[in-house]
Design a binder for these strands. Structure first.
Length: 373
DNA sequence: AATACCTACAACCGCCTTTCG
DNA sequence: TCGAAAGGCGGTTGTAGGTAT
């Protein structure tokens, strides 16, 4: 049994935006007498408002120590770091940012930071890389099986989604390094600055844990050394405009693919991906009859499967042609993200391949997914 | 110019915890 | 110790201003 609202008994109290006159009455009264009992304050101050409304107006807007204006980069970093630890404990977060109210931080999170993280490929709830880009694939394939007629699947779009998922994992890590490096230039480097920020924000207890994570990020940075990231045509804080997985405008002859062949193509063949990342348009679907693969580097999960003796039992076509291929994604794929001891439960390739193979084997249980292209 | 839609933010609501007689 | 009042908190809503059609 909850308490009744503080002003329920007085239906005549004013609601809505405060006028400058009301603000002045409230400020003048508090400067003279202090707020005392909030419930009694409105009557004493000559305001037709409920005490709770007066308290909120004072604490969120009129208090003299409130800092107005845009959030700084450093404040953003602190909010993001604290949110990763504390969750939606806005008042606790506000306690670490002088002059900012919980309400202001909450609003800023909901309107700016949440979207910013999403665009960077980071789940704003878990603060880990988003996996939702892969989430639609099982439904897609299930729909193909249930309907009896295979959908129009833009294979290049699937490839693009998968690459974007991987790319966003990189973005998440790179973001930490690049933003910290920019803010802390000349003061001992990005990592040092990040540590300083964390110390300042009261996260001393988390330091060692974070340091371990930073070491992993440094490993990544070493692997990125020499890769010209500007070639990918993406801003690290920008969003990826991904094409739909279905291309409804395509003719069936152009793009109908069984889950089997989809799996084969995705896992074994590789694609000419050099144009994909920089271009927002849908790449024309690959025809079923033009199957000459232009291989990118082998995906680690598939190489591992080959080594286990399953599948082709030998060198895959993509490995045979990898040396001659020229893909924008080669450099990223060669990063061997999967071998990094990153604290993600599963890498993107495992998730994608598992989803694809589960659906394929459900629909075609006896078929063997060998690459024979 | 009118309308619809979107975004940001102030304010409100309802529940929970703390305080106090 | 108990219950009501007061304060605190997080989620949600309302609204003003900006932008697109």
């Amino acid at each position: 049994m909850g308490r009744s609202p503080c002003c329920e008994q007085d239906a005549d109290v004013k609601k809505g935006p405060w006028t400058p006159e009301e603000d002045k009455l409230l400020v003048d009264y508090i400067h003279k007498h202090g707020h005392g009992s909030w419930r009694r304050l409105p009557k004493l101050a000559g305001l037709n408002r409920c005490g709770k409304s007066c308290r909120l107006r004072w604490t969120n807007y009129l208090r003299p120590d409130i800092k107005r204006g845009d959030f700084t980069k450093a404040e953003e970093e602190i909010i993001i770091n604290l949110h990763a630890t504390l969750g939606n404990k806005w008042s606790s977060i506000a306690g670490k940012l002088k002059g900012r109210t919980d309400n202001e931080i909450k609003n800023y999170w909901n309107t700016h930071l949440r979207k910013k993280l999403m665009n960077q490929g980071i789940d704003p709830v878990t603060h880990r890389p988003r996996t939702d880009l892969l989430a639609g694939i099982p439904n897609l394939l299930a729909a193909a099986g249930a309907g009896g007629q295979l959908p129009l699947i833009d294979i290049n779009a699937i490839k693009l989604h998968a690459d974007a998922a991987k790319f966003q994992i990189l973005q998440g890590l790179i973001r930490v390094l690049t933003t910290a490096a920019g803010a802390g230039a000349g003061a001992g480097g990005g990592i040092d600055h990040l540590m300083t920020t964390m110390l300042a924000s009261g996260l001393l207890g988390q330091q060692q844990q974070q340091q371990q994570q930073l070491q992993l990020q440094q490993q990544l940075l070493q692997q990125l050394d020499g890769v010209d990231l500007s070639r990918f045509g993406q801003q690290f804080d920008g969003s990826c405009n991904l094409p739909p997985l279905y291309d409804s405008s395509s003719s069936p002859a152009m793009s109908s693919l069984s889950p089997d062949s989809l799996l084969e193509r995705y896992a074994g063949a590789g694609f000419q991906a050099s144009d994909v990342m920089g271009s927002p348009e849908i790449v024309p679907p690959i025809s079923m009859t033009t199957t000459t693969p232009v291989a990118a580097a082998p995906m680690p999960a598939m190489v591992a499967a080959d080594q286990d003796g399953g599948g082709s039992g030998g060198v895959s076509p993509c490995e045979q042609t990898a040396a001659a291929s020229s893909s924008t994604f080669e450099e990223l794929q060669n990063l061997n993200l999967d071998e990094l001891d990153i604290n993600y439960e599963r890498c993107w390739t495992e998730m994608l391949l598992e989803q694809l193979s589960n659906n394929a084997s459900d629909m075609y249980p006896t078929k063997n997914n060998t690459t024979d292209m």
